[in-house]
């Protein structure tokens, strides 16, 4: 609906995978997996609700493999204490919006993710959230300092940073190989 969808499509394209924008309930029937991109979670909530897409998407997310980055990750968690944002409760944490601060606190860093990647990953954090009250069923794949930043639960993968902003599609590849293909 809004956000860094073009960058995600580019990352998927680098892997030879076709993607399409989902803007209506009909579009949902045409996909095998979904990415909820970075963007503004308040805007996404309003667009999903105004277009009558929130309920169909909520239903689809019960079975659909999904990858959420930043705002997308906020929406996939448990309902947060902010009425401007409506969450899908698909992964067990509560996100804290803009937890690092405003844009001046945005940064990039190198993450080591040995459980899934054989090389370091350059990660860009933009007004990023932090994941709080993480449930035991959630698997942390990467941490920055003491904060988990890449998490998995069942068919749900989330990152508080933006793998779509770098030219390295290896986290997208992990999502495709280990979550989408294995859930078929």
């Amino acid at each position: 609906m809004q956000g860094s969808f073009a960058k995600h499509a580019y990352s998927m394209g680098n892997l030879g995978i076709k993607s399409r924008a989902v803007r209506t309930a009909e579009d949902l029937k045409l996909i095998d997996a979904l990415i909820l991109p970075g963007g503004e979670s308040t805007t996404m909530t309003l667009l999903l609700e105004n277009e009558g897409l929130w309920d169909p998407l909520n239903e689809a997310l019960k079975t659909l493999p999904v990858f959420g980055t930043c705002a997308g990750a906020i929406l996939l968690g448990q309902q947060i204490d902010d009425e401007r944002v409506r969450c899908f409760n698909r992964i067990n944490y509560k996100a804290e919006r803009n937890a690092y601060g405003r844009q001046i606190e945005s940064f990039s860093t190198t993450l080591v993710i040995p459980s899934i990647l054989d090389h370091d990953f350059h990660a860009v954090f933009i007004r990023a959230p932090k994941f709080r009250e993480i449930g035991p069923e959630v698997v942390p794949l990467a941490v920055f300092g003491s904060d988990p930043v890449l998490l998995k639960q069942g068919k749900v993968l989330v990152a508080s940073f933006h793998p779509e902003l770098t030219d390295d599609p290896s986290i997208h590849k992990y999502f495709m190989d280990e979550i989408v293909l294995k859930s078929r």
């Binding site: 609906m1 809004q2 956000g3 860094s4 969808f5 073009a6 960058k7 970075g38 963007g39 503004e40 805007t43 930043c70 705002a71 844009q103 945005s106 940064f107 990039s108 860009v124 954090f125 933009i126 007004r127 933006h162 902003l165």
Partner: peptide, 12 residues
């Protein structure tokens, strides 16, 4: 990091 925020504002 600077252009990253603009990427997040796209389609808005």
């Amino acid at each position: 990091v600077k252009t990253g925020l603009a990427e997040m504002l796209k389609g808005g």
